[in-house]
Amino acid sequence: MTRVLVVEDEPQIVRALRINLKARGYEVEAAPDGRTALDLAARHRPDVVILDLGLPDMDGGQVIRGLRGWLSVPIIVLSARQDSTDKVEALDAGADDYVTKPFGMDELLARLRAAVRRATPAEEAAVIATQDFTIDLAAKRVTRQGTDIRLTPTEWHVLEVLVRHAGRLVSQRQLLREVWGPAYEHETNYLRVYLAQLRRKLEADPAHPRHLITEPGMGYRFEP
């Protein structure tokens, strides 16, 4: 289910969006201000963000830049500001689309679907097969010798980030930021715990891993 974070301080608009999005199978969370939005995004990692620029505690552009520091999901601005300067600033800050109020719900939903499609890379459907286990990114499934391996949501998220950077070093800070959010960039003990759990479940010899490699002091690397 696609998770949508609605950042909007007008209750009527939030209600309309919530009703229409839920009716089409989206999971919806709402934030009335920028700080709440950044906190929800860090804790629940939305798949797409709908964002008003005129928020009570900070400008929407600040929220965009805050999200873009660690999150790559589509951001659709929904704003009463119609000046081209505002649009350019929002897009330069990292927004993917800009819809002006008043807006048509059908148009907004179409733009939302398009943004989600563009954000889904072709390799989403890829199946990565190693000598010891197989990862189906689209199905979010891992099998070992034909048997499903149960991973917790956090274990899967750690594995997914590493797999999407296969063969490349993922720094500790980047991995913490992508999985837990920017407030956890220094919690390196989290990584030791979860990598150990993944190795126990996936590696033939967890003490001498072939696929989930530690680069001491730097980060981790997935080798197919």
Rank of each mutant, 00 (worst) to 15 (best):
M1L: 04
Q82S: 14
A30Y: 06
G66K: 00
E178L: 06
L55I: 00
E27C: 12
R144H: 00
P46C: 06
Q82K: 12
L137T: 09
I75H: 00
Q172D: 02
L159C: 05
R81D: 11
R111C: 04
D83L: 10
L78D: 00
A93Y: 10
V193S: 14
Q174M: 15
P121V: 01
E160F: 14
V28S: 09
R200F: 03
R117Q: 12
L212I: 08
A42T: 10
D33A: 06
E178N: 07
A196H: 12
W180S: 08
Q12M: 13
D57F: 06
L78W: 10
G146E: 01
D96A: 00
R45Y: 02
R118G: 03
T214F: 01
G69L: 04
D136F: 06
L137V: 09
P102E: 00
S72R: 13
P224D: 04
P224M: 08
W180Q: 01
R168Q: 15
G219N: 10
L169N: 01
R118W: 00
V48S: 02
T85Y: 15
R15M: 09
R3W: 03
T130S: 09
V116Y: 11
V158Q: 06
I13N: 09
L137F: 09
H208R: 15
E8G: 09
A31Y: 05
D59W: 08
L38R: 11
T152R: 13
E123R: 08
G66F: 01
V158M: 09
R210V: 08
L5F: 08
L71M: 11
V142M: 01
I128W: 10
G54D: 11
Y26G: 01
L40V: 14
T134Q: 14
D39H: 15
K101M: 11
R200L: 07
Y190K: 13
L137N: 11
R65I: 00
R113V: 13
I64Q: 04
R35W: 07
D96M: 02
P74V: 00
L112K: 08
R68F: 04
G104T: 10
P209R: 08
G146F: 05
D52I: 01
V158P: 04
A204C: 03
E10I: 14
R173P: 05
L55A: 01
P182A: 11
R192G: 14
V48F: 07
R68E: 05
D9N: 09
R65H: 00
F222G: 03
E223M: 14
K101V: 05
R221L: 08
T143Y: 04
M218V: 15
V142Q: 07
V163F: 01
V48H: 04
N189C: 13
E203C: 05
V73W: 03
R65P: 00
L71G: 07
A196R: 12
I135N: 07
T147H: 15
G219D: 09
